[in-house]
């Protein structure tokens, strides 16, 4: 790639090279489908130009078989590519369980990242090469979209819900990161970079960056400050669910049915507690929607996730 003019974006993961292969192969197909049109228009316009003698006898004005075939053949070819691309896409929804989880908060007009040990950074994301990384994203205000061209990945960040995206970058380097969903005045400068590092370098970076407390530890402080512990502490007299070991466990609901207590459920239960009430508990929890910002919610969720082995404690 020359410095003067870039024609193909760099690729930093196996997935991105697969996308390149897909679009390359697909381009071949569409050229094959459209070339006859371009060539024949020129040929016909020359050969059958008005006033020019040519054999025009038996000019057809319909041919059902021909028409059916140019309806069906491209369609069948496209189905093949549809399966290929949908298969690739489905992979994006199935992150490996051991993926390193990094929290992302988007707000006008910056990206905030929090690593599991609590290291925070703004507009710059350091990740280890060769390890799957999963970003759990929330927006504090409007819809944003995290876009890393070198990974061929993009995911909207929508207020009111968590979205996530995962990747395994394999080539160390610094790559561009951008906001792709229009988010107001400074949309075009809401960007930064993704720094892919060798795992050892990443570990060193984590150490150097350091932090006072982990995300979960900060969540524990909030848990007391905001009064959550008043009801949810096992010693409390209020009849409220014990949160230890809750994460990723099935929860039977008052309204019937069961949900898995994933991050989205924990978040909803904090902000919209009346929505999904655990069976056997009174709907007495107030909403914290106006009390907590997205970052604090993330900390609380991280704290609840960290409460392992509730069973033993009982």
């Amino acid at each position: 790639m020359s410095d003067f003019i870039a024609l193909w974006p760099g690729a930093a993961s196996a997935y991105s090279r697969e996308v390149d292969l897909l679009i390359g192969a697909f381009t071949v197909l569409i050229v094959a489908l459209s070339a006859p049109v371009f060539i024949l228009i020129v040929v016909f316009a020359t050969k059958y130009r008005r006033g020019k003698p040519a054999n025009r006898r038996h000019a057809p004005d319909r041919n059902v078989w021909l028409e059916v075939s140019w309806t069906l053949v491209p369609f069948l070819l496209l189905i093949g590519f549809y399966i290929w691309s949908t298969h690739l896409f489905a992979g994006l929804y199935h992150p490996p369980a051991e993926a390193l989880e990094i929290d992302v908060i988007a707000k006008q007009w910056m990206w905030k990242f929090r690593h599991p040990e609590g290291q925070g950074e703004i507009n710059e994301l350091h990740v280890p090469a060769g390890e799957p990384v999963r970003l759990v994203m929330a927006s504090q205000d409007v819809v944003h979209s995290l876009f890393v061209p070198a990974l061929r990945l993009k995911q909207d960040v929508v207020p009111g819900r968590y979205t996530s995206m995962w990747f395994t970058a394999d080539t160390p380097g610094t790559y561009r990161l951008a906001c792709a969903e229009f988010c107001g005045a400074d949309h075009s400068v809401m960007g930064g970079s993704v720094v892919v590092m060798e795992p050892a370098d990443y570990a060193r970076w984590l150490e150097e960056t350091g932090t006072d407390r982990t995300l979960a530890a900060e969540g524990a402080v909030l848990f007391r400050q905001r009064g959550c512990s008043g009801c949810h502490d096992p010693a409390s007299t209020v009849h409220a669910p014990d949160l230890a070991g809750l994460y990723m466990r099935p929860v039977p609901l008052e309204s019937g049915g069961t949900v898995i207590a994933d991050a989205q459920y924990l978040r909803d239960s904090i902000l919209l507690p009346q929505a999904q009430i655990a069976a056997g508990y009174p709907p007495i929890m107030p909403t914290f929607a106006n009390v907590l910002d997205e970052e604090e919610v993330l900390k609380l969720v991280a704290y609840i996730q960290s409460l392992k082995g509730g069973k033993e404690r009982q």
Partner: peptide
């Protein structure tokens, strides 16, 4: 697909026509 059908049919219309430019 229906859009593609239109394009192919236009091209076929030109075949053996009296094409004006």
């Amino acid at each position: 697909i229906p859009s593609g059908v239109k394009v192919y049919n236009w091209t076929a219309t030109l075949y053996k026509g009296h094409i004006s430019l």
